[in-house]
């Protein structure tokens, strides 16, 4: 009986903790950014925005420290009695390398390899904090009326990126945005 009570208490505390953390994460998600899922006849797009201030990036950029935002977009099919099924997962890396000599910033899209030099901080902020019209997956991969969730987790890194395989073990996600959708 005592053991049973201990189990019940433990379960109650676990549920309470999960509820608290979930509520915290939703509140956090609401404040941390916005995520919009759009789709046309063939492609599902996403628009994401981080609600981070310029100063958070400028703090590093003004000292010439590169700032990188790693956007991990994941689309999964919601299931009621089982873990959600992953449908698609893409990673977009936006990297800004400051050029202190010319007071310009090199915007680098690591996924495509395209880079450009800008002289405006708003461009930098826009580049780092937003994903616009990003093609995520082919619409044909999705089922009609089935619920899906698009999750965007953003990691903001400063300085050089550690490409070691074990560096992701303790990678901390700054922001996580979720949006449920289904095909109309």
């Amino acid at each position: 009986m005592k053991h049973f009570l201990h189990c019940k208490l433990f379960s109650f505390l676990s549920v309470l903790a999960v509820f608290f953390l979930t509520a915290q994460s939703f509140a956090f998600a609401e404040e941390a950014g916005e995520l919009q899922v759009r789709m046309d006849a063939q492609v599902v797009y996403c628009d994401a925005r981080l609600n981070k201030g310029e100063q958070e990036f400028l703090h590093f950029l003004k000292d010439g420290i590169p700032v990188t935002t790693v956007w991990k977009i994941k689309v999964s099919k919601l299931r009621e009695y089982w873990l959600n099924k992953s449908v698609a997962e893409i990673i977009v890396i936006h990297r800004v390398v400051p050029d202190l000599l010319t007071r310009s910033w090199m915007l680098i899209d690591e996924a495509s390899g395209i880079s450009r030099r800008v002289y405006s901080l708003s461009d930098v902020y826009h580049f780092l904090s937003r994903l616009e019209n990003l093609s995520v997956l082919d619409r044909s991969l999705l089922l009609d009326q089935a619920p899906y969730r698009m999750s965007v987790s953003v990691v903001v890194a400063h300085g050089e990126i550690n490409d070691a395989w074990w560096s992701k073990w303790w990678e901390s996600v700054d922001t996580e945005l979720n949006r449920e959708f289904s095909l109309p």
Partner: peptide, 18 residues
């Protein structure tokens, strides 16, 4: 030289941040 100065400055600031 200028780039070296920039690199050093960047390293210094990065270290300072870290």
């Amino acid at each position: 030289n200028a780039r070296a100065v920039e690199s050093d400055y960047r390293s210094y600031r990065e270290l300072e941040h870290n």
